[in-house]
């Protein structure tokens, strides 16, 4: 029997790693990867917990996956548009808006 807590520990560490990637990385695609890790972490929680055999958690996880796909599609389209104009996706160098 696996204690539920261990699922939560793994998810918490995954979430922390995702947030650390988001905060420290300057490359836009890296940041997006970090966000995906954070979403996955939340999904592990939703899937692992089960209250009296209800499937709400699993359904929530399914919707999160759908939203993640939509967000990734729009996100990468915008990142490509940035790359075409700035020739870089380093967020420190994407700095046209000044004042």
């Amino acid at each position: 029997m696996i204690p539920l807590e261990h699922f939560y520990f793994i998810s918490a560490i995954l979430f922390a790693l995702g947030l650390a990637i988001v905060v420290t990385r300057r490359n836009a695609i890296f940041v997006l990867m970090g966000v995906e890790l954070m979403l996955n972490a939340a999904n592990i929680n939703f899937v692992a917990i089960s209250h009296g055999g209800k499937l709400e958690g699993q359904l929530f996880a399914l919707f999160v996956i759908v939203v993640a796909a939509a967000e990734a599609a729009v996100g990468l389209a915008i990142i490509l548009a940035v790359y075409r104009r700035f020739k870089t996706i380093n967020l420190d160098k994407v700095n046209e808006i000044t004042d």
Binding site: A28, I49, L91, V94
Partner: peptide
């Protein structure tokens, strides 16, 4: 240039904020 720059910053910031919110929701659930 400025338009896509603001869009990418908005997007990354928004995605992180909603991921934080989602993790909070998973605990509340």
């Amino acid at each position: 240039k400025r338009g896509v720059e603001s869009a990418v910053k908005y997007l990354l910031f928004g995605a992180v904020a909603s991921a934080l919110m989602l993790y909070g929701m998973s605990w509340i659930y």
